[in-house]
Design a protein around this nucleic acid. Structure first.
Lengths: 348, 348
DNA sequence: TAGAGTCTGGACATCGTTGTCAGGCAGGGA
DNA sequence: TCCCTGCCTGACAACGATGTCCAGACTCTA
């Protein structure tokens, strides 16, 4: 039989059967259908079967909008990232999805495309759809716009970076410590002129990593020339220019710390084009696929992206289960993965 | 002022103000608030201002569940991928997002984790939330479960692979032609014993690519030994074993076609561990980041992932705008990107 | 056979918003 | 002065599901 058989003649294309339709077809009351659909007790198996038949024949599916309206909870949480295509967020989002699934909750992924306005637009759209909770990788400089939503009961956790302007749960990596250990590693291999190329300074992680870089240099008693630090967009052209300037100036650097995986990849390209007899050491923040297969293999400060997602999601559900928890801050450790590019000796 | 000032005393934590609350605070009717919120005409600027003040004071945000219930449309479409962390899907999902945005529509991303059951669960959950449309990268062997939904008016487009069991809009790459051109490239460089390692045979793309491989071999009058073809999961262990067997059997292959980027990456690892004096040529299906920086650089058959997403999303919105279009099939061309690994001479 | 207790099913209000429609009011023409 | 037009405004029903509560049917016991 085809699935269109048995539809009531009133059903137009684009209109769906409701519980009322199911009830009248099965010859029972509305509430009985509701009981069957929700697996509630108090329906004889004979009645249950009749209702189920009607549901199948009509192709009925419960309208969750109506359900949400009545019940108040949506069993849905939102995750707002900067860029779905950035490999750093893959494991993060996957980890969140697993936790959400364990709580029978649907995860909605969205991307702000690095644009504060789009982040806000997206977050508020999800709030208007009454998600129970929100996980946000902040792109914008100010998150006070979420205050009314949080007060109204939408659990919110910030991941990878803290929010600005409000107190909220936050899960981040130890960016300062990670950068510091990466630079210390370069120093231990004899480098004294080390550059840092990072993301926009308004982004918290970029600032923290810069701070870690400075700390390591200071601890070794090394000076930091202003032209050894370059913060800005991670667009390949900008990063390329920055790298080339640092490598050719009056006091060229012999080693580089790159502020995230986008920057690292571009810098790897720049270094590959240079004279292989004058190698430049490199430590990248964020691990990336195939880093071990490049020659030289790229030494990185790896973040636990899946851990960030998992811890943040757990915190979100804790908060959903128990309102009124005080805001918490969790900092996850990073790990230096030594592979080769950071062990090159200084060229001079 | 803090944002909690002015809340009516009845407002509990976790309950939100409604239009009714706004109306009574502003001293106007319910419908007038609705007009202001939706920017409808027919409200004096004085009234509008009073209402807006009440909205701000109460932190009101329209409940879209109720709105959807009343209006029938959600201005939301869903995209179901296999794995959010697979870099192939990044540009695809980004392209869909751009198109959705141009239509003032929210995009919900979800992942099936390669599991047919999860795909169905997710698709139906989105249908229950009454998304207007659905873009699906099929993971399952049977999509008849979507038939009632499509009949009920949920526009559905399949991407990257066709659906099984139903007629529907589909946008795919020219998998057969792409694989054929990749293998022809290897043959042109003197290879006669060429292997193919692909995804599970039930996956349409894997089968098509196998067909392309066979076509190219046949056209060159070359035999295909059964142990030169290995289909199965893309788990690294399986792929590694398959590659090692093909490279060490009685008639070892001198070149490989890999069926997608996951397989390619694993094979690159295997090849990197082997004797560099006996190189194995490689052509991978799907481009991937840094393919050009490996040594040898990896020659690939590149798909237009962004194109897949863009074309599919456009088709979805065409269908939303005009119901009853006949199902269409679009096949996008692939591009052979010659980089080095496919040009190695046969080892013997 | 009557009464008590249990189980099943249905009528109705409700969630927050929007579409319909009618009432009120001001201004202009006769 | 009266009526008509046009503009604002608000009362009310409806969207589809769920929770409350009660009625009727049934079983079991005295």
């Amino acid at each position: 039989m085809t699935l269109t058989e048995g539809r009531p003649p009133t059903s137009r294309y684009g209109s769906r059967p409701t519980m009322k339709d199911v009830a009248s077809r099965a010859g029972v009351g509305l509430k009985t259908v509701s009981r069957v659909v929700n697996g509630e007790p108090g329906v004889t198996s004979e009645t249950r079967r009749r209702v189920q038949d009607a549901i199948d024949a009509l192709g009925f599916r419960r309208n969750d909008s109506a359900r949400v309206l009545r019940k108040g909870r949506t069993a849905t949480v939102g995750l707002i990232l900067e860029d779905l295509a950035d490999p750093f967020y893959g494991p993060l989002s996957r980890a969140v999805e697993e936790v959400a699934r364990a709580h029978d909750t649907l995860l909605i992924n969205g991307s702000s495309a690095h644009d504060p306005y789009r982040e806000q637009e997206l977050a508020l759209a999800l709030c208007a759809r009454r998600v129970d909770g929100l996980l946000v990788v902040p792109a914008g400089p100010d998150h006070r716009y979420l205050e009314p939503e949080m007060h109204a009961g939408i659990a919110t956790v910030f991941v990878d970076r803290p929010a600005r302007g409000i107190e909220a749960d936050t899960v981040v990596s130890d960016n300062h410590g990670g950068a510091r250990s990466g630079v210390a590693h370069l120093i231990a291999h004899g480098h004294r002129r080390i550059g840092y190329i990072g993301d926009l300074p308004r982004i918290h992680t970029a600032a923290e990593r810069l701070r870690g870089y400075r700390t390591a240099m200071e601890e070794a008693g090394l000076p930091v020339r202003p032209d050894w630090v370059s913060l800005g967009s991670t667009a390949p052209e900008r990063v390329r220019r920055a790298a080339e300037e640092m490598l050719s100036g009056p006091a060229p650097v012999t080693a580089l710390l790159t502020g995230n995986n986008r920057v690292t990849v571009t810098v790897v390209r720049v270094l590959a084009e240079r004279d292989p007899h004058r190698p430049v050491a490199l430590v990248g923040f964020d691990d990336f696929e195939l880093a071990d297969l490049l020659r030289p293999a790229v030494t990185v400060v790896a973040q636990d992206a899946a851990g960030l997602g998992r811890v943040a999601a757990r915190r979100l559900f804790d908060r959903l289960g128990q309102a009124g928890l005080p805001p918490s801050l969790v900092e996850l450790p990073t790990r230096l993965m030594v592979r080769g590019s950071g062990e090159l000796p200084p060229a001079d």
